[in-house]
Every structure is written in structure tokens, then in C-alpha cells.
């Protein structure tokens, strides 16, 4: 084994009980080439300061808990490696655009509310009884929405979105991608119900098509395209609602 390398990790610390505002703390962490940034944080917690607080679970980029700003870029810390930054210093901070609870843990309750508000479940187009059997879906219909099912709710797209930063009420990229996932599902008939939110002042028109959300998405969901497809849908609804027998959404 090669000799031990040491990387400097600057960590954003914030303890709501004692700190007025967040500050940076520097740690010198010995590491090996196979160590992720998350493992670096774990090393600090185990060896230097047990009070360092951060979320993590799966360590393999599927649970979506360990998102943080790494040198200012929203990333999953489990799939970002210390070796790619060495010998430079690395700075890890809580995700942008969220209130900090403690250290690297942010308050996700606003996001959870948004997630609920998009009705993230299939609202059956035509309800079927068990006797009628399963819903049939062709590979073509499946392909229309499958990409948007890959979201792991890591909220890196929210940390990336300048409009979420400017208007925290904006429903945001991740929730919109999931909304689009259900709207595009051939079994679902809830698009009209969801339109009220899409077309609202909290809806898609907050987006100014920066598309950084899609760039940082670790699962290649492309929330920017979901948002912008729904701008066109909402515009159609706006202008054609007077022609629709039901009058469109509210």
C-alpha cells in the first residue's frame, strides 16, 4: 500500500443551540483512493468530532440521503471521491436553498409538502375491479414515463435551482418531474387535477430554463424537460380552457 495521504476537508458547521450562524471548520483527514466524500465525513465523525451531523444510508447512490454541496456543487457524497480533489482542499456544506437543521442536515419538510401536493400516485383513468384484471400497458406507453420514475428524492436539483433559491414556494424541479411521471402514465387520469398546481403562481412559470437541475441529477431524470413540457401544457390549458366543456382547471 502506498503511503498515507492527507486531504483537508472544510466542513460547514452549524449548531442551532449555540451558533448564531454557520461557520467552516477544517479537518485533516487521512484517506485512501477508494474513499468517498461521505467516508471522509464518517472519518471525521468517528475520529475527530462525534457531533458532526449528516444524513446517509445506502452508500451506493440509490437512497438519496447524502446530498451536499461539494466545492459549491450539489452532489451525492457517496459517489464523489476524495481522490478527485486531492491535493486541493475540499469544502462540504449543507445543500443550498434549504434551511439548515444542524451541520450538513437540512430541513426537507418544505420539499415533502411539495411532493405531497403533486398527488404522486396513480389516479386511475378508469377504475377496474379485481375481476377485470390488471391494467395493460405497452412498452411504448411505458417508455413515455419510465425516465421520470428514476428520481430518488435527493433534492440536489433543488439545491441547484436558482429559482427555488429566489422563491421557496416554487414547486421545483424534482416534484415537477414526478408530477410529469404520473401525468404521462397511460393508467393515470389525474393530469387535470394536477394542472391547478402546474398553472399556479407556484407552478412551472417560476422556471427560467437554467436546466442546472438536470445537470446535477445523479439519476439522469431531466427535471428541466419535465418542467418545460408542462409550461406548454399549462399555456394550452390557459388559452383553451374556455373551449373545454369542463372549463379546464380552476
Amino acid at each position: 500500500m502506498s503511503e498515507q495521504k492527507i486531504i483537508e476537508i472544510e466542513v460547514l458547521r452549524y449548531n442551532p443551540e449555540t451558533d448564531q450562524e454557520p461557520h467552516l471548520e477544517l479537518f485533516k483527514v487521512p484517506f485512501t483512493d477508494d474513499m468517498s466524500v461521505l467516508q471522509g465525513a464518517q472519518y471525521i465523525k468517528d475520529n475527530f468530532d462525534g457531533s458532526l451531523t449528516f444524513r446517509w444510508s445506502c452508500r451506493m447512490a440509490i437512497c438519496g440521503s447524502c446530498g451536499m454541496m461539494i466545492n459549491g456543487i450539489p452532489k451525492l457524497s457517496c459517489e464523489t471521491f476524495l481522490r478527485d480533489y486531492y491535493p486541493n482542499r475540499i469544502r462540504i456544506e449543507a445543500m443550498s436553498n434549504f434551511p439548515i437543521e444542524k451541520d450538513l442536515v437540512v430541513d426537507l419538510s418544505g420539499f415533502i409538502e411539495k411532493l405531497e401536493s403533486i398527488k404522486p400516485y396513480i389516479i386511475p383513468r378508469e377504475p377496474r375491479t379485481l375481476e377485470q384484471g390488471e391494467y395493460i400497458q405497452s412498452p411504448e406507453e411505458f417508455n413515455k414515463y419510465i425516465q421520470f420514475t428514476s428520481c430518488i428524492n435527493c433534492t440536489l436539483c433543488y439545491a441547484a435551482c436558482p429559482q427555488v433559491g429566489l422563491n421557496p414556494d416554487f414547486i421545483g424541479p424534482g416534484a415537477m418531474a414526478l408530477l410529469h411521471r404520473y401525468n404521462m402514465d397511460s393508467r393515470d387520469g389525474g393530469a387535470a387535477q394536477r394542472m391547478e398546481l402546474v398553472a399556479s403562481e407556484e407552478g412551472v412559470y417560476n422556471c427560467s430554463a437554467v436546466a442546472y437541475c438536470s445537470e446535477v441529477c445523479p439519476k439522469h431524470v431531466d427535471p428541466a424537460s419535465a418542467v418545460n413540457i408542462n409550461k406548454a401544457n399549462a399555456a394550452k390549458d390557459y388559452f383553451l380552457r374556455f373551449l373545454s366543456p369542463k372549463g379546464g382547471s380552476k
Binding site: 409538502e113 391547478e196 399556479s200 407556484e202 390557459y238
Partner: peptide, 16 residues
């Protein structure tokens, strides 16, 4: 969320 949602008039400007 039981917020009252107001329809955005953005489609006019966004369309133009």
C-alpha cells in the same frame, strides 16, 4: 397542503 392556488397569468407573457 390546503393552500389556495392562484392561476398564474404567465402564459400570456411566456407565449409572446
Amino acid at each position: 397542503m390546503t393552500k389556495i392556488l392562484k392561476r398564474s397569468n404567465a402564459p400570456i407573457f411566456w407565449g409572446l
